[in-house]
Amino acid sequence: MSLLSIRDLHATVGGNEILKGINLEIGPGEIHAVMGPNGSGKSTLSYVLAGREGYEVTRGTIAFKGKDLIDLAADERANEGVFLAFQYPVEVPGVVGMTFLREAYNAKLRYLGKQEIDAMEFLKFVRSRAKTLNMSDDMLKRAVNVGFSGGEKKRNEILQMAVLEPDLAILDETDSGLDIDALKLVSDGVNELRSENHSMLIITHYQRLLNYIQPDHVHVLAHGKIQRSGGKELALELEAKGYAEFSEEAA
């Protein structure tokens, strides 16, 4: 059974239809890459999956672990195991990263009807996760994303993902704005988390991230629809030919 099953998904933003019939199946442990030109609806897809307000599903279904996701609020989806690594991580002034992460972790435990984690125990757990990712947990001592460099923000997202251990992680243009070192660090983190329990949907404009993270499937999204699907070789083909073909197809 698929972990995530999207059928004929149509969605509007501010009355404009952006997604026009998406079909996508993601199985447990699979990594899918969704590529496409600017304005194709990539980020809209990630927000629709995460349940952002203002992104309205007008037709179709999203089943996650057999549950209908559309009826759940954003926080419920998160606690069910959907994680979105933001393209533009948001600043939360005055809230220390470690606290933020612990609140999030405990919210999920409460949702699952489990006992909350002790602060010291949590600290140890986060340190061990950071170590596996070869990252410093120093940024968790600062207010969430405040004064972070672009690279730090993205690393912070990956660290949060590693701690929250989602069933499905959606990485929305995580590679944008990263230099080659930061890109490598982030990709190593993602590869470290790769397992049969963690599926990923990687949304990207460029192929270069896929040099570091090998996807099982690649999809091309254009004009609100998946135009083509294939293996990782599709990404290379896109790199060579660009997206021109898809703008013609649609026209």
């Binding site: 307000e53 998160a78 979105l84 933001f86 948001v90 939360v92 992460l101 609140e103 999030a104 949060q160």
Partner: peptide
């Protein structure tokens, strides 16, 4: 944005 970010991490 802040609200959505927090909610996406599981907070009501």
């Amino acid at each position: 944005d802040q609200m959505f970010y927090c909610q996406q991490r599981g907070l009501s």
